[in-house]
Amino acid sequence: MTTTDPALPQGDLDAVRTTIAQHPFAAGLAVDHLAVLAEHAATVVVAAGTFVFRQGAPADTLYLLVEGDVDLEVAGGGAEPLVLESLHGGDALGWSWLFPTQPWLFDAHARSATRAVTIDGDRLRAAVHADAVFGRDLACRVAALVSDRLRHARLQLVDSWTHDRRA
C-alpha cells in the first residue's frame, strides 16, 4: 500500500527539493534542474509487504528510495517469486519511463517500510525533450544507472553459468 509521506507535506516544494538534492541520483544536479524534478515529484511511504509496482503495469514513475528495502522480483509458473536484486535507501528505481508505453518488467516488493520520492515519468520525459541541457544530464544519470544494473546482471549470469558448468 502506497500513501503520501506524512513526514514531508505534499506541495512543500522546498522540502521535496531538499530531499531530492540529498539523494545520490541527483548529486551535483544544477539548482534549476533540481527544481524541475521537484515540480513533478511527490513523497510516498510504501508499507512493508506491499508492492511499489507490479510487473505489467505502466512504467510511468522514477523512484528515488530514501529509506527502506525493495526487492525486485520475478514470479512465474506458480513458483515462489525469485528476488533478483534488493534496492535500498539511496538507490534509484525505474528507467522505463524514459520510453513511452513501457510496462514494468518485474515486481517491486517493499520488504520493509519504504520512503521514496516519486517523479512523474510522463512529465519528466516531456521536460527531458523540452530542455536539451536538462535532458542530456538526466539521460546520462539514467544511463549510468542502467550501466551499473547491466554490469551486475552480467556478473550474475557469469556466476550462474560458471557454477553450472562446474557442477
Partner: peptide
C-alpha cells in the same frame, strides 16, 4: 547473494554492489 526467494532477510545483488556502500 545473487538471487534468493522471499524469506531471505539479507541483501540480494552481486558482491560488487556492496563496494560503493
Amino acid at each position: 547473494v545473487d538471487s534468493a526467494v522471499r524469506g531471505w532477510s539479507g541483501r540480494v545483488g552481486v558482491v560488487t554492489t556492496l563496494i560503493p556502500r
